[in-house]
Design a protein around this nucleic acid. Structure first.
Lengths: 238, 238
DNA sequence: ACCGCGAAGTTGGGGCCCCAACAGTCATCG
DNA sequence: CGATGACTGTTGGGGCCCCAACTTCGCGGT
């Protein structure tokens, strides 16, 4: 039947219904633990369970010392993959074209590939690659983490013009012929959760992007965005 | 510092480390609540919290009456989006080309569009569309849910050959020029959790796919796959 | 009119207990 | 020898309590 015999689910289902049908709009206050125990005549544990479940569903958030509130139906920002491949920072360009202000900083350093990366880049595990970390911010919040790996020699000269990867590679005589993105969802790692200021229960979208020149991978990167804020848009003409 | 002052995190961190570095391999049994309280000298609540956290991270699963076990590092099955667009069921073809056996069943019915769908299909909210539900199975497990919506008139004739959507539309004089996929991650709805037999804490990948003929959408579908089993692969030549 | 302080309410971590449903194991019975 | 049943251990739901850290709000004083 609909109303389960697990007591906390009764509470969850009722609150969820109210949130989804708009009775409790975005920002509305959810009854506190104490109020729930009285209202639904359940124990404190059940009330807790219910709240926790709704939090991990992403429907509400808890503000410690204050209360639980209905999460704003965070509009998912579309990221138009490879619409802006000819820009130095496709991500920032995409968001700027949507009228948002995006800033970022990055730093590069040499690193040894390791087995995983060696496979992706087609180099020896002991090879040295250039690793570049990016952090993108907008509206004062962190939006995207990216880590790019390239074999040595293609790194942008200090103070060089900011051009797209494709253009930069071309200048080195490497013609990029294909871009492949492999995308999955997962729980953020602790460092990512911190860097992206993710609330509990939010997953990330993890894109592994590889640029190919013929059958040789020439760049690969890991792109991490909060799953509750973005959607990826892919488009192909037939 | 690394070891937090939240007691249960000490347990989580220690177990997580052991799982990630292989000390506890896939299938290995995690100490029970009682054992954890003794081993880490914490209360039962903290032990519970730790176990629950690891479950929701997807690292372990709990089998009631038996114990908690390290989850096999479920290899993510690649789905090559639009590599098999010229097949009746790209999903099944893709998996079959990877040596898996996939079965599916579906049923069609008329339905009124509603506001959301009306926007996606560019029709009136009161318009009638053909809705087709698909359930794909493989290895005895449900793998994918899909719901396709088309304006009336294009539905396959009963007993007609199974051809791709593109070919079928073409036979109706509609030339599909573009395919757009919008992808995001979210918590599964209860019905999806049941249909896909999803363990707790697993998200789904939700693909909204729309076929365009010029500037007119002619088909749209919602494709739901378990986030812990699949990755989406997109590729474009430059 | 404004500031500061304290009381009350709230979340989240933690403790300890009870119980039902289920899984294994092992001994006993036909 | 095989089936059955009792016993033990485990998870997951639930109850109730204590406490620290934090927010809110109202009262009193300047």
């Amino acid at each position: 039947m609909a109303t389960s015999d697990r007591v906390y689910l009764r509470v969850v289902e009722d609150l969820r219904r109210q949130i989804l049908d708009g009775t409790l709009g975005p920002g509305a206050v959810i009854p506190s633990r104490a109020q729930l125990t009285r209202k639904y005549r359940v124990g404190e544990t059940a009330a807790r369970h219910a709240l926790r479940a709704l939090v991990s569903e992403g429907l509400i958030i808890g503000r410690i010392g204050s209360g639980h509130y209905v999460r704003e139906a965070s509009r998912l920002i579309p990221l138009h993959r490879w619409r802006f491949l000819d820009h130095a920072t496709p991500f920032a360009t995409d968001l700027q074209s949507q009228g948002r202000h995006v800033t970022w900083d990055w730093h590069s350093e040499p690193a040894t590939a390791g087995s995983d990366l060696a496979r992706r880049l087609g180099v020896a595990a002991s090879a040295t690659v250039t690793r570049t970390h990016y952090v993108f911010r907008g509206d004062g919040r962190p939006l995207q983490l990216a880590t790019a790996y390239e074999p040595l020699g293609f790194a942008p000269h200090a103070g060089a013009e900011r051009t797209s990867l494709v253009a930069r590679m071309y200048a080195h005589g490497v013609k990029i012929t294909e871009v492949v993105e492999s995308l999955h969802t997962r729980e953020p790692e602790p460092s990512e959760r911190e860097a992206l200021e993710l609330p509990a229960g939010v997953h990330v979208l993890h894109v592994e992007r590889t640029h190919w020149a013929g059958d040789r991978p020439v760049e690969t990167s890991d792109i991490i965005v909060p799953g509750d804020r973005f959607r990826m848009v892919y488009s192909i003409p037939l």
